[in-house]
Amino acid sequence: MSSAPLLSQEHRERYALVTQERTFNAHSIGNDTVMTRIRHKSLACSPGCAVEATLQYIDGKWKGVILYHLLQGTLRFNEIRKRLPNITQRMLTTQLRELEHDGFVLRTVYPEVPPKVEYSLTERGRTLEPVIMALKKWGDENTEFGQAPLP
């Protein structure tokens, strides 16, 4: 059974002309290597660009999990750390800053001694709830915790 090609010749030629930009260079942090991430300047690069663009916002080992916990309400920094015992303080700070920069998380600092900082989802962050919950549902149905993933 033959299927039609995903892209017409015209679209393949148009997508081939789109340039990409490097957002950071590969470097090592401890034993982890951070690889170069390519971000498209335009979403007209290919049919999968919208998926790629979405994944760029929630990429990283911890962003999806942080968003999941913030769906339940406002949390302080140490409350998030308690829920994610394997994350380092530096990594949590980095991930929260990126989520804040992308408009998904609101950081509220209260002028107290010691400083009180709370994190909550913005309206834009709340729009990711169906995505995060779909990932959770898929994980619940397709993984067995403590065992190797299903083939």
Rank of each mutant, 00 (worst) to 15 (best):
M1N: 05
S2V: 00
S3E: 13
L7N: 01
S8M: 03
E10T: 13
R12F: 06
E13G: 07
R14P: 00
Y15N: 01
L17C: 08
L17H: 09
V18S: 06
V18N: 08
T19L: 07
T19W: 00
T19E: 07
F24C: 11
N25I: 07
H27F: 04
S28E: 15
I29V: 15
N31Q: 10
D32E: 14
T33Q: 15
T33R: 14
R37W: 02
I38R: 11
R39L: 07
R39P: 01
K41V: 11
S42R: 15
S42C: 13
A44L: 03
C45K: 13
S46G: 03
G48M: 04
C49F: 00
C49K: 01
A50H: 03
V51Q: 13
E52Q: 07
E52A: 01
T54P: 04
L55Y: 04
L55N: 11
Q56W: 00
I58P: 03
K63V: 03
G64N: 10
V65W: 10
L67W: 02
Y68G: 06
Y68P: 06
H69N: 15
L70F: 05
L70D: 07
L71N: 06
L71V: 03
Q72D: 15
G73E: 12
T74I: 11
T74K: 15
R76K: 15
F77W: 14
F77A: 12
N78T: 12
E79M: 08
I80P: 01
R81H: 06
R81K: 15
K82D: 13
K82G: 09
K82F: 07
R83S: 12
L84T: 02
P85N: 11
P85T: 03
T88P: 07
R90M: 08
T93Q: 14
T94Y: 08
T94L: 12
L96R: 01
R97P: 04
E98A: 13
L99Y: 06
E100L: 04
E100I: 02
H101S: 14
H101V: 05
D102L: 14
G103C: 10
F104G: 09
V105D: 08
R107H: 10
V113C: 10
V113H: 10
V113A: 11
P114I: 12
P114H: 12
P115M: 11
K116S: 06
E118C: 05
Y119C: 02
S120D: 01
S120A: 11
T122A: 10
R124W: 02
R124G: 03
R126H: 12
T127Y: 01
L128N: 05
I132D: 12
M133S: 10
M133V: 06
A134D: 05
K136W: 08
K136D: 09
K136L: 14
K137L: 04
K137E: 01
W138H: 14
D140N: 13
E141W: 02
E141Y: 04
N142G: 01
F145Y: 00
F145H: 02
G146R: 03
P149E: 04
L150K: 13
P151K: 02
